[in-house]
Each structure stands twice: as C-alpha cells, then as structure tokens.
Design a protein around this nucleic acid. Sequence first.
DNA 1: TCCTTGCGCGGGAGCGCTCTCAAGGGAGTC
DNA 2: GACTCCCTTGAGAGCGCTCCCGCGCAAGGA
Lengths: 357, 357
Amino acid sequence: MYKRGVRALPRNGAAGNGNPTLEEVARVAGVSRATASRVFTASPKVSPKARRAVERAAEKLRYVPNRAARTLVTGRTDSVGLVIPEPTSFLFGDPFFPRLVRGIGEVLSRRQLQLVLLMPQSKEDEARLEGYLSAGHVDGVLMVSLHGNDPLPERVHRRGTPVVLGGKPNVDSPVNYVDVDNVGGARSAVEHLIKIGRRRIATVTGPLDMGAGVDRLQGYHDALRQAGAQIDPVLQESGDFGQPRGAKAMEALLHRRPDLDAVFCASDAMAAGALETLRRHKRRVPQDVAVVGFDDSTIATSTVPPLSSVRQPIEEMGREMARLLLAGLDSPPSGGKRVILATELVVRASSGKGGRE
Amino acid sequence: MYKRGVRALPRNGAAGNGNPTLEEVARVAGVSRATASRVFTASPKVSPKARRAVERAAEKLRYVPNRAARTLVTGRTDSVGLVIPEPTSFLFGDPFFPRLVRGIGEVLSRRQLQLVLLMPQSKEDEARLEGYLSAGHVDGVLMVSLHGNDPLPERVHRRGTPVVLGGKPNVDSPVNYVDVDNVGGARSAVEHLIKIGRRRIATVTGPLDMGAGVDRLQGYHDALRQAGAQIDPVLQESGDFGQPRGAKAMEALLHRRPDLDAVFCASDAMAAGALETLRRHKRRVPQDVAVVGFDDSTIATSTVPPLSSVRQPIEEMGREMARLLLAGLDSPPSGGKRVILATELVVRASSGKGGRE
DNA sequence: TCCTTGCGCGGGAGCGCTCTCAAGGGAGTC
DNA sequence: GACTCCCTTGAGAGCGCTCCCGCGCAAGGA
C-alpha cells in the first residue's frame, strides 16, 4: 500500500508554529478578517465596538501580525539596513559603534522599524549586498564611513532605495549624508593651540582616503592660514587613527622639528601614542608640547595628562541619519540632502593651564 | 458613471517594485516555476541542463528571491535577533560591541543569515519584544549581558525559539550560554600579584548584579584562598565598571588600608581611575602599588604606566554564540549547553618589572 | 518485448495578510 | 414617507513562493 499524503493536515510552514492568525482573531471577535485587518493597520473606518472586540480577541489569543504575509502584499518590510564595511568597525574610537547604533535605534523604534545589520565580510558578500538592498528586503539603507569611493550607495540610491550615509562620501554624489563638522572641530582645536601661544603646531593626520582624515587636516590648515601662519609640510605626518602609528608619527615629527611646541592628532588613540613618545623624549605636556586629540573617547580621560579633545555628537548623528531616512521613506526619492553636526572642543590638562603662557 | 477599478492592473505591493519574480525566471528559462524554485532551494532533483537554464535566466533578470514570500510558506525567516538591553551598551569596555557583532556576523554570514538588532529602549518596547521574538519573526535569538534576572530569555526559550546568551545568566536557567572565564581571568590576575610578592591585595569590583561582576570577585577570592591568605572585606570596594567610580573606590581603599600594595580592578576603566587616585596620593605604580585591570581595552595601553589586564576573546565569544545558535536551529530544541572561553593575562608595566621584589 | 523502477518535472494549492469593491443600514433632508 | 448620502462591513482576489502529488519517460531486469 502506498503512503498517502493527508491533505487535510496543515503543512509545515508558518501555519505549523501555533501562532494565531488574523482569521482566528476575526472569528473570536465575531467580525470579518477585513475588519480585523483594519484594526491593525490603524485604518479609521472601524466602529469603536468592532475595534474593541478585535483588540480583546487579539489580546486573548496573543496575536502578533505575521510580518512576512504583510510584507508580501504591501511591499514594505518595516525594516532598514545598516551597512558597515568590514574594516570600518576597528577604526572607530571607543564607543562609536554602540553610540551610533543607539541614536539610530532611538528614532527607528518610535516607528516600529527593525534595524538589520549588514556587514559584508568578503568580496562575495559585497556583491550579494547590492542585490539584497535593491530587492526590497529593506525599506531604506544607512551606511557608515566608506573608504575610497565605494559605488554601492549611489547604485542602491539609483535603484530607488532611500539611502543615508554617515560621513561624507569621498566623491561628489547625490546621496544624502550626515556628518560631524570635522573641519570645524579640527579648526577649533588648532585655534585653541594658537590662542594659548603655540607657534610651531604639528599634526598627525588620519588616513587620507577617508573623509574624516581629509577634513581634520583641512581644519588644521584653515586655522593656521587664518592666523596668518605658514603651512609647513615638515610639521605634518600621516597616521591611521591607531595608537602605534601615533607614537611613530610623533617620533618622526620630533626628529624633524625638535622645537615644535604643540601637536594636533586626528584621533585620541594617536594622541595617546604621541604622549608616550613625548614622555620618552622628556618633553613635558603641556609645558613643552601641548597636545589635542579628536573623538573625546574614553582614552582621553585615562591618559596622563588627560587629553584635550574634540567631542562629536555621535548619538545625534545616528538620530539624524535615521530621521533623514524616515523622511525619504515617506516622500518620493530625494537626494543631495546633507546635515553637518557641530563638534565641541573639550579642554583638559594636555593643553590647559600650567602651560607657559 | 461609477469609477470602476481596473482589475487587470497590478496592485501596489511587491509586484509594483519592478523586481522579477520566480515565474518570470521560469518562463525565460523555459521550465516550470517548481523547477526554478528547486534550483534556488538547492534541491538535488534538478537536471544539470535545467539548472543551468534557470541560473542563466536568473542572472539575466537579476533575480533575487523574495524573502517575504519564502518566509510565508516555509516559516523560516533566515534571520536571527540580537537583543541588547539599553543600559548594557555603555558598560562595555571599548570595542566590545563591534568585536562581538563581528564574531557573530562571521558565522552567520556563512549561512546567509541576517542579523536583526533589537534594542528595547522602554518598558513598552520590552513588552513587545517577547511577542516579536516568539511570533517567528526570527529563527533564533542571541542576547547579551542581562542585569538582574531578566525572565525574557527563558520565556522565549520555552515558547520554542532557540536562544543563546552571551554572559552567564544570574539565575540558574535552562538557556544555553557562552561566557568568558571571568573567574579564571580574575584568579590569574590575582595569582600574578601574589607571585610578584604582593600581600595586601585590594579589589574594585564590578556591579554585583551582573555575572561578570560576581565572577571576577569570585576569582579574586579563589586566588587569595588558594594562597592561604585571608579575605579581608576592608580590601574590597564595589564599583560600576566606570572610571570615576574606580577613582573614588581607590580613594576609599587607600583611606582604609594605606598600606595596600596591589589592587585588582574588574575593568580597565576603573583601573585607569585607580591610577589617577594613586598618582594624586604619590603612590608609585608598580613599586608601591601594583595594578591589574580587566578587558584589555584600548585604555590599557594609553595609561601611565600601561595596564596589566585580562584579555577576553570577544570575537570568539560572538562566533561561539552564533555556532551554538545554529546548532539549535538545525536540531530539536535543546538547553543547558554552556561554553566557557579562556582568558589570558597580559602583563604590562603597572604590575611588571621595576617592582620591588 | 513487456514490466518495473525511479528520476525529473509541472500542476496546483495555499501560507497570512491587505486592499478594492460593492452592499447594507442608519441618519439626515425635502 | 421616500430618497440620498455616508459610514461601516464582508467577500474575494492575489502578493511570490514552496512543496505535495502524480505523470511521463528512459533505463534496467525478466
């Protein structure tokens, strides 16, 4: 005898997981499926009585709408992707990542949107990513800090999915972005060094294939120029945001200009490295050499002396990215919006009183 | 005349987004939808010829399967949730969060699973979360570091969704978890202090409503006991993992036991605070007081002197969590699995040579 | 040559939901 | 009292996919 499939039994699939469906809620509430649906889609066309009945039934059955079914018909997924390229996560100072995600989450959760983390780890992943993002698996995309000129955001944007970048893209692109005022932050750091009487101000830059690296160098130049000072390439050394490179860069700077009296480092980690080197060379900080970092990370308060640093509104950046994306979800595709958030110099002992002015 | 709906036109919804469907791929490939489907579900029952035809058609049309439709019928979502309670993200040293997520992502991406970040930010969010997790919106759940005895993981586990915790739960629970060997790490730190000749070893604990806090204190006790030393409550001060509390706790300890000759801090940030206080009190580190931290964060290398610290395999913890979850997805619900990962003491100047032994 | 075996394939149902359409019924108007 | 209007409701189709069922055909055994 043949084994025969039994048609009447539910198949596997979502039906099998024991979750109540809208159908059941409607039955318990004594209304049609359509009316029950209207309650959950916040449609206004439901009588108070019917609404109450449905709400009670839903509560009783612990009903939770099936997102897949909803997505299938509406075309919305109620989720947004956050793309973080592999190398990025390590460059960031301190609690950058959690703070950013927190800001994003704050705004998204008010709209009941889920955040899907996408971290391509190989070329293969990256190739798949564009398809994934464009296929409607997410309603919008947030991306942080790309190196070089990644074509991905622009491609996805063109395919019609709203995109917001965190950090200025290297190339000129029609994609919306939010950035902190790296130029202004660096400028205020260097202006501060000038104001406390420093004249031979060096800098350790970030990686110059990143917007943040370029802009912080720009701010350094701006401040010097505005003060009528000359820009001396000998006072400039490039780094990678990491502590060891900071130490090495400081070594090189001291070798070339033993008489430098201040250094602006494009990250706190590099500034910590610089402090190390300065100590080894018996330079007093801030008396002989004043030091300012960037990021205002936890490192800044743990060094000796504590680091003056430029504070960035990371949470706010996350929030603003999410807000910009939400605006893009509601209205037709737009581009070219940019939001720049102010930074703030926090002066501590590494450039503070006790100097020689 | 009435406005009449035009039935023939596609409605809004996923059909409107211009993405090709399986139907179209099948048509182009000259096979049935069922056969095309078999190609994408990696079913073996497809002739090489048909398979090639489908693959070519898919490539040509840039076909990406619609996840919602697939989920609707299979009941799988191919995504897992990562739950991070609000207060948590701030407690963690340094690059904890990115490193953990990276480890998780490494394993998940090999299986094409998406990571959905869930950060309940209010009581309301938390209430919704249980429904969300149990309703089949994710195939499994990863959760990190809960305070107190959060009933959520156990509830979700009981409702049939695989769960893996990062960090030991406070209460005894049937939920799988991965943790680093906090007890062993702390023990090795204190044993090291004993070995370099310290006898009055104090500790600044973490929050004692967290597993990590309790276990690190436990390790401190174990090491002392094993060395035949007495456990003196006067040498013990509680903290919160943060730098300011570390500084304050050190103050209290020095006041009570001016003759202490070592301190083990349950986090690097607190150790940095302790160094601050010791400096103010003109204690030399490590000559007068040796200091060891925990986390081996970026702070550890930026202090003066650099901190000895206990290194944790964070990426590996993420990977192991993901692996454990994958195992749970494949096989029937299981519980009670636990994986403890070894830690490693990194000795630097704060407890190193130049001491007085 | 006929029958068995099994592999590959297509037909078709249905997952749970939203949304359009049209119908029912109560209130308001002349 | 008859008619109109609007507010609420239900029926039904269909989103794109997977999987069960059974058919047909080629290969192997008798």
